[in-house]
Amino acid sequence: MTSVTATADAVPRKAKVGSLERQNRWALRGSFAALSVFVVIFLVPPFYMIMTSLKSSAEISAQKGSPWIAQNPTLDNFAYLVTNEQFQRYFLNSVWVTALVVLLSMTIAILAAFSLSRMGFKGSHVISTGVFLTYLVPPSLLFIPLFQVVGSLGLINNTWVLVLLFPTLAVPFCTWIMIGYFSSIPKELDEAALIDGASYPQILLKIFIPVALPGIIAATIFAFTVGWGAFLYPLAYLYSADQAVLTVGIVRELIRGDVFAWGTIMAACVMGAAPPIIIYTFLMDYYVAGLTAGATKG
């Protein structure tokens, strides 16, 4: 078959390649032009966020000249926030909540995924399907009954409630990602280890976790995104400023002031958006690979 196509191609190849190349070059230029337009549009809000964060309240209220550019850029807003006790507390609350949520979610997800993908027991298929199904149950369906549940546990207005509830948002998807990665590890690998006398904890720690590291990174980023950015649960269950996390703190507490505090608010948003952006800058490829693992097959 190869010989047939080769002879058929041989004659017109030169002319065709030339025109295809020209076509491709134009497609490339057009794509770059269109993408530039889209990038500019998509980056308007973050750009304006940064610009506003560099303005003083006086400059915002004066409304002179273009609002798109900070005429006298200043870092005062950031300096104010860094020394502001309330903001420090939001930030620290977000940090420890996110750290615990990631740790907890990943432990639960890795153990369960190992068990579900390798140690198959009766009903393990039902559980994996069920896990995926619960991933599709959104928090906005559950926050009212959970209000009662959380209340009966005495956790209303206590930051720990997030450590309890955020894993419910992260674990199903993390488990799902991990099942996918663990299933792709050849069975021969752990069978060989079993024959050599390795125990299950050893197999998990020495084979599965190192081999599935890209998947673990992807799942960790997902858990981080949930812990850092989720909004509904903290808004519903934390009402005093000292228990609030970043998202709710900025939206609820900073806006109470007069309208000209927008410079500070936007500076707070920039600082809140920075950790995810930094993490994604370095690890985005893993995350995208984890998310789209299903898309590239079948």
Partner: peptide
């Protein structure tokens, strides 16, 4: 990779924070 990264920015910023900047816009 670079273009994709730029376009992913809206999706990476916590939604509640980016919505605030829309509100301000």
């Amino acid at each position: 990779r670079i273009w994709r990264g730029l376009l992913l920015v809206p999706w990476v910023i916590p939604l509640s924070l980016s919505t605030l900047s829309w509100w301000w816009l």
